[in-house]
C-alpha cells in the first residue's frame, strides 16, 4: 500500500486491483455513486461517480468505479462541474421513472433520494416520462414496484452471483429497458426468490420490498434521516485490514474474479 494517486489534491493510497472509487472510499473520501455496491464487481452504468482525470488542458472524464487506480493519477471529484453533472444524472433518473417519495415505503432509506438531497437536487428539471410500469404484487411476501427502478442491475447481480438463482434479468433496450423476472408467467410468485436472498437486500431504491412491514420505522428515523449518504457510504465502505478487522480487505471478492 505504498502507491498513491491524487484525489482533489489529497494523496489516496490504493491496493493493486482497486478502482479509484474503491480506493477513495477505503481511504475515507466520498465520491457520490449509485450502482456501485462494495460487495459486487463495479458496474459503471449510473455514471454518477464520474470524475475528471488529469490536470491542465489534457483532461478526460470517466466513471471512477471502473477506473483502475494508478499511481500518479490526478483526479478531480468534489468540484462544481462534476457535482453539476451528478445532479443532472440524478435528475434524469427522477424524470425517467415514477418516483413519488411521499408515498414510497423506501423513503428515508432510498439511495437515489438521499443522493438527490445531498447533491441539492430540487427538481427533476426535465419533462417527466411517466412510464407505465405495472407493479407485481403476485408474491405473498414480496412486492415489486418497477416504477422506481433505476436499472442499476444490483438485484440481477446479487440474484445470479450470490443467490445463484438469477431471478432478475434485463430486457428491452434504450429508454424501454426494463427488469424482467425469471418465470414463464413473468410473475415473481412463480420464481424461487426467498426473503433471505441477497437480492432482497441490495435494491438502492424502492423496487423490491418486503410486504407487511411498511412504515415499521417512522419517516424521520430512517437511515438517511440520521446521516447524509455522503457520511453513511463511508461507514459502509470496506476499509484496510487495520481499520476494520480481518475481513475488510478493501477489495471485494467478486472484483477479483
Amino acid at each position: 500500500m505504498s502507491e498513491t494517486f491524487q484525489l482533489d489534491g489529497e494523496d489516496i493510497p490504493f491496493a493493486p486491483g482497486q478502482t479509484v472509487l474503491q480506493a477513495a472510499l477505503s481511504a475515507g473520501h466520498y465520491i457520490p455513486h449509485l450502482c456501485y455496491h462494495p460487495e459486487f464487481k463495479p458496474h459503471g452504468s449510473c455514471k454518477v461517480c464520474t470524475v475528471k482525470i488529469g490536470g491542465g488542458n489534457n483532461t478526460r472524464t470517466a466513471a471512477s468505479c471502473t477506473l483502475p487506480a494508478q499511481a500518479g493519477l490526478e483526479i478531480e471529484s468534489d468540484t462544481e462541474e462534476m457535482n453539476a453533472l451528478r445532479r443532472t444524472l440524478v435528475q434524469m433518473l427522477f424524470a425517467e421513472g415514477n418516483h413519488f417519495c411521499p408515498s414510497c415505503e423506501k423513503s428515508g432509506n432510498c439511495e437515489l433520494q438521499a443522493l438527490g438531497s445531498d447533491l441539492g437536487v430540487m427538481t427533476a428539471g426535465f419533462r417527466h416520462f411517466y412510464p407505465d410500469r405495472p407493479v407485481d404484487a403476485s408474491h405473498p411476501d414480496i412486492l415489486l414496484d418497477f416504477n422506481r427502478c433505476i436499472l442499476c442491475e444490483l438485484c440481477v447481480r446479487a440474484s445470479c452471483e450470490v443467490d445463484e438463482k438469477c431471478v432478475f434479468s434485463l430486457s428491452g433496450r434504450g429508454i424501454t429497458k426494463h427488469l424482467v423476472v425469471n418465470a414463464t408467467s413473468g410473475k415473481l410468485a412463480d420464481t424461487d426468490i426467498a426473503l433471505t436472498d441477497k437480492a432482497m437486500q441490495v435494491c438502492p431504491v424502492g423496487v423490491i420490498l418486503k410486504k407487511r412491514v411498511g412504515f415499521a420505522v417512522p419517516i424521520g428515523q430512517r437511515r438517511y434521516d440520521q446521516r447524509p449518504i455522503s457520511a453513511q457510504a463511508l461507514d459502509d465502505a470496506p476499509r484496510p485490514p487495520s481499520a476494520s478487522g480481518p475481513n475488510g480487505s478493501g477489495v471485494c471478492q467478486a472484483c477479483e474474479e
Partner: peptide, 18 residues
C-alpha cells in the same frame, strides 16, 4: 416558486398517469 412534491413532480395526483 413551485412549492411541494405535487408542484415539483406532479406528486400524488400524478400517480393516476398510468
Amino acid at each position: 416558486v413551485a412549492v411541494g412534491a405535487c408542484a415539483v413532480t406532479g406528486g400524488l395526483p400524478a400517480q393516476r398517469n398510468h
